Simulated assay, not measured.
Amino acid sequence: MDDENMPIGRLEIAGFDVSNLLWELDDIEQAVRELALYSPFREYFKEALELANYATSFWLEDGRYPDRAGSVVATMFRLRDEIEEHASYADAASLPSVIRRFHNIDHNAADSQLVATYTLVQSIQAIQVLANWLFETELYVFDLDADLIAQMQVTDPKKYCALAEKERLKDPGGEIDARESFRTFMGDADKAIMLASLYRQVEDTDVSNGNFKVANFLSEALSKAFSAKASQRAAAAGKANRKPESVKQQDAANLFERIRSAADRHILANPAISERELKKALVKKEGIASEPTVKKYLVIGGYLPR
Score class of each variant (00 low, 15 high):
230 A>W: 00
244 P>Q: 05
261 S>H: 02
217 F>P: 03
262 A>W: 02
195 L>F: 04
261 S>L: 00
204 D>S: 15
247 V>N: 04
263 A>V: 08
252 A>P: 02
226 F>E: 09
206 D>L: 06
225 A>V: 09
243 K>L: 10
200 R>N: 09
215 A>T: 04
203 E>V: 02
253 A>W: 00
251 D>Q: 13
241 N>A: 11
239 K>Y: 04
226 F>V: 11
220 E>N: 13
213 K>D: 14
211 N>Y: 11
246 S>E: 13
227 S>W: 10
227 S>P: 10
191 K>V: 13
238 G>N: 08
214 V>N: 03
237 A>T: 08
200 R>F: 07
243 K>T: 10
226 F>Q: 11
261 S>M: 00
253 A>I: 01
220 E>D: 15
208 S>T: 15
228 A>K: 12
228 A>S: 13
238 G>C: 09
243 K>G: 06
207 V>M: 12
260 R>M: 00
235 A>I: 14
227 S>L: 10
205 T>R: 09
232 Q>P: 10
197 S>Q: 08
258 R>A: 01
264 D>N: 11
243 K>H: 10
211 N>T: 09
255 L>M: 08
238 G>M: 08
205 T>A: 12
199 Y>E: 01
192 A>L: 10
227 S>A: 11
196 A>R: 00
207 V>W: 12
239 K>C: 03
208 S>G: 12
225 A>I: 07
239 K>D: 06
231 S>G: 08
226 F>S: 08
221 A>T: 06
226 F>G: 03
203 E>R: 02
255 L>N: 01
221 A>P: 04
221 A>G: 05
200 R>D: 09
235 A>V: 15
223 S>L: 14
194 M>R: 04
203 E>P: 03
192 A>I: 10
200 R>E: 14
193 I>C: 05
233 R>P: 05
253 A>T: 01
226 F>R: 11
204 D>L: 15
226 F>C: 06
240 A>C: 11
264 D>Q: 09
266 H>P: 05
198 L>H: 03
212 F>G: 06
233 R>H: 10
205 T>E: 14
255 L>T: 03
224 K>M: 15
197 S>V: 07
219 S>Q: 14
218 L>Q: 12
211 N>F: 12
247 V>Y: 06
235 A>Q: 15
229 K>P: 04
215 A>F: 00
230 A>N: 05
263 A>I: 08
203 E>C: 02
252 A>C: 10
204 D>K: 15
260 R>L: 01
209 N>D: 12
191 K>Y: 13
252 A>F: 04
199 Y>Q: 02
211 N>D: 13
203 E>D: 07
239 K>S: 03
210 G>Q: 14
266 H>G: 03
244 P>T: 05
249 Q>A: 11
249 Q>D: 13
244 P>L: 02
231 S>T: 13
249 Q>E: 13
239 K>M: 05
215 A>L: 04
257 E>P: 00
265 R>K: 14
225 A>D: 06
203 E>L: 05
197 S>N: 11
217 F>D: 01
232 Q>K: 15
246 S>L: 07
237 A>E: 04
260 R>E: 00
234 A>D: 12
216 N>I: 07
214 V>P: 01
222 L>G: 07
193 I>R: 00
245 E>C: 04
193 I>D: 01
199 Y>V: 00
214 V>Y: 05
235 A>K: 14
243 K>P: 02
208 S>I: 15
224 K>A: 13
